[in-house]
Each structure stands twice: as structure tokens, then as C-alpha cells.
Amino acid sequence: MRRLFQFIYQYRAFFIFLLLEVVSGWFVVNHNDYISASYFNSSSAIAGNVYENRQAVQDYFQLAKVNQNLVEENELLRNRLAVDSLTVEVDSTDIPLQLSGQYEFITGKVVNNSVHRFRNYFTLDVGSKDGIKEGMGVVNPNGIIGKIKSVSTNFSTAYSALHSSLLVSVLIDETETLCTAKWSGEDPTQISLEYVPRHIKVQEGMQVVSSGYDAIFPEGVKLGTVKSVEIDEEATFYDIEVALSADFFSLDYVYVIGNKLKQEKDSLEQELQKEYEQ
């Protein structure tokens, strides 16, 4: 027994090394892909504050661009309003989905962002006190941005759409084909579409929008336009690349989308799933 302790003491550096590597490995496996409340990421109070202060300095250099974006969005919304007021009939009992109050939008500012890694995240300056919850979708005027990963009181961390394990349920607008968007990890301006069967006639320039089936994003939020379409002789599915409509290099203000009916939808579907499995 004494010799064992002597042995461990003699090679203590190696055993400390092993211990620390096991701890790190455990963190890598158990932490990164879970949506869980966690203190050890950029939504923690300290990291969030550091990033917020850094952003406060950078803000001054982006003012002109942010202003331009806001003006453009205003114009878009005003135009839409002008069209909608003509089409919505007063005596109609059918309320459009967007007006029924199912979705609520919370404005947030991106204080930290990355695009060049395999798993990209960004940090927002809004947290649980503003009503942010885990799993909410994040969009900006140009399209889909990501999904909230973890929340603290004042900050939240979100998966960017440029994250190799974030899947978004989308439709090809013209053909109504349901498929999945997933980032391949290389080019931050484009994303891949998976599970588009070969009998669909896909062309370049087609619009890709969210399907609304995952209850994270409302139906019809833009993701991008089809950039290239390829298919192998024997493959079942297309290889499709989509040019992202949102510019991930310069994110400023975003909207976090809460779906009030998500729980209802999920519980209903789970029941069905259980019945199906029996």
C-alpha cells in the first residue's frame, strides 16, 4: 500500500494531468450539446458584462449602419401595412396567424458573435427578466439567426444558425417541400439543405423559408435563396446550398420569438407519439 502511494506521489504530475483531462473531457461530452441552464458560458453575469462593455465601445463605429438597417426595415413594414389594410376585411372572422397573438417578439442586441468556428454562438443583452426562455427562436429583419441556448437574469447565449448541430425545419417556398437546413461548418454565407427528394424540381433562386412545424419560428420567415443544386446519379437526395439572407458578419439588433402555444402543441404531439409507439 505504501509503495502504491509512493508511486502515485512520484508521478503526481502525470496523475494530476490525467485527472484534469478527464474533467475537461467530461465537460466536452456533457456540456456543449445540451440545452441547459449553465453558469459556465457567455450568458453568465461576468462574461455578459464584459461583452456588453466591449460592444458599447464598438457601437459608435456601427451607428450609421444600424440606422440604415432600421430605416430599411421601417420602410418594409410600412409598405406591408399599406398592403394589409386593403386585404384584411373588416367582417372577416378569420384572424391572420401573425395578428392572433400566438407569437411575441422581444428586441435584443447582439453583444458578442462568432462566425468562423464549427459551433458558433452569439450573446444577447436580454435575459430571463425580459421574458427570454430556452429554446426560443431568434430572427432579424433579414431572416433566421438562431435559437436560444441558455439564459441568465440579464443575458442569454444562443446557437447561431451557423452551428453544426442546430437543425431548422424549412420549406422550399415554390414547391412546398419540407426539408432540414444544417450548416456544414465551412462557409458562413451559406447553409445546406438536407432530405430534398430527387423527384422535386429544384432550381436556383428559389426561396427557402421556415416551415413553422418546429414551433420555434413562425411560418414563412426567410432563410435564404437556393444558390446551387447538385445530385449524384444514384443519390436519393439533392445536395443543395442556400445563400443565407441574413448577414452573420454584422449582427446588431435581433428579435427573440416566443410562441405561446408551443407547449400545447408539443404535449398534443407527444400524446400522439406515445399512441403510435404502442
Binding site: A13, F17, S24, G25, W26, N41
Partner: peptide
């Protein structure tokens, strides 16, 4: 070793990649 581990941990918190830099820093510290 402990210094490398700690530094990696701080960087991981800011990078949202808990464990990654810790493992790498511990390795080169060793």
C-alpha cells in the same frame, strides 16, 4: 498544470466551448 487548466477554463466560458480549451491547455502544460 493547474494554471493551464484555469486559463483554459476562463477562455472556454467566454467562447461557449466548455472543456475544449481546458483539454488543450492541460495537454500542453503537461
Amino acid at each position: 498544470l493547474l494554471l493551464g487548466f484555469l486559463t483554459g477554463f476562463i477562455i472556454d466560458v467566454f467562447y461557449n466551448s466548455l472543456g475544449t480549451h481546458m483539454a488543450a491547455m492541460t495537454l500542453i502544460a503537461f
